[in-house]
């Protein structure tokens, strides 16, 4: 089955963040999918993927946690594609997939924990994990997307911020860097492509895959604030009005440390932060409320109004 057909109906793994601070990402992803005629079936009774933390206790527990989600999608729901919009979830499912295919020790621990938990052990290759970017890029594509735009982004200047976990480390993403049409780990462009098709002007942004310090956003907040300030300043210097995000941890980190940079370091920036699904939804004719724009801590409604968008 080609990707265009395979991605029409996928298992959806929102993850913990999308039920909390990333609520607007969940809302806008679902709304955009519906608008584009793509079907999402939420993974039943899912659990946390292990995020950035569980691997520091023991990496094989994280492999098990992620494998349980894939096992439910494959064995209890009959899906062959799992879509995760959160970079952390996406990364961990991909990493579990790699480890289960290549490491005997990971397979043993996953089997032991799965049988004690009482579900079928996930076998590598049962599902393909994709990001929300792959989903829209491959199921719809730029051409069809451009044809469906009702409300162009009118040359809105956007810095596309992909973060760490979407591209690194390279070995867990075998489909990237694999020739024409594939995503690049050094200069990712899927979000740029989709937003350009929706009428945005992507600025030349050097910090696309820089780190926001998300893993230590609370435990080493000053480091995270410095890293985020670099990203915000670089985006502004590149002329961006909006930073588009594709990860709830990055997004919340940018919003939180934009405030913290001002309160604790006196660094003031004005660039707004929006999920790429919020921007796409608005371009497709959804109302700002429908994509949860009012929920963003960084309020970008005036920036859109100034460009007569929406």
């Amino acid at each position: 089955m080609d990707k265009k057909t395979a991605y029409k109906k996928v298992a959806y793994y929102p993850g913990c963040a999308l039920e909390g601070t990333g609520h607007a990402y969940n809302k806008s992803t679902r709304a955009v999918g519906k608008k584009l005629g793509l079907e999402l079936e939420e993974v039943k009774n899912w659990n946390c993927c292990g995020a950035m933390e569980v691997k520091n206790i023991d990496p094989k527990i994280q492999t098990y946690l992620s494998s349980r989600v894939m096992s439910i999608a494959a064995n209890e729901m009959g899906h062959s594609v799992v879509m995760a919009p959160c970079n952390g979830c996406y990364h961990n499912l991909k990493k579990a997939e790699y480890d289960l295919a290549h490491d005997e020790g990971s397979r043993e621990v996953t089997e032991r924990l799965s049988s004690k938990a009482g579900h079928t052990t996930y076998e590598a290759g049962q599902v393909e994990t994709i990001h929300a970017l792959d989903w829209i890029k491959d199921a719809i594509g730029e051409e069809e997307l451009a044809a469906r735009v009702k409300n162009s982004l009118n040359g809105l200047k956007i810095a596309n911020y992909y973060g760490c976990m979407y591209t690194r480390p390279r070995h867990i993403f075998p489909e990237k860097d694999s020739g024409p049409g594939s995503e690049s780990t050094s200069a990712p462009h899927f979000m740029d492509d989709l937003l350009a098709a929706a009428g945005a002007e992507n600025v030349d942004f050097a910090l696309k895959t820089a780190c926001c310090g998300g893993a230590h956003t609370l435990s080493d907040a000053d480091t995270s604030t410095k890293l985020v300030a670099n990203i915000l300043i670089a985006a502004e210097e590149a002329g961006a009005e909006v930073i588009a995000t594709e990860c709830p941890t990055c997004h919340t980190g940018l919003e939180m440390h934009q405030i913290r940079a001002e309160t604790n370091f006196g660094i003031k920036t004005n660039v707004k932060v929006m999920y790429f699904t919020q921007l796409l939804g608005i371009a497709l004719g959804l109302s700002p409320r429908k994509v949860g724009l009012q929920e963003n801590v960084s309020d970008g409604r005036a920036a859109l109004k100034a460009r007569q968008i929406g």
Binding site: C16, G20, T21, E53, V54, L65
Partner: peptide, 22 residues
């Protein structure tokens, strides 16, 4: 370290309930 404290808080919540809440 604060990072270890965070990892332990986070992981014990996941181990207990399967999920975390921000």
């Amino acid at each position: 370290s604060p990072s270890t404290q965070f990892d332990e808080e986070f992981s014990s919540q996941v181990f207990r309930t399967g999920k975390i809440e921000d």
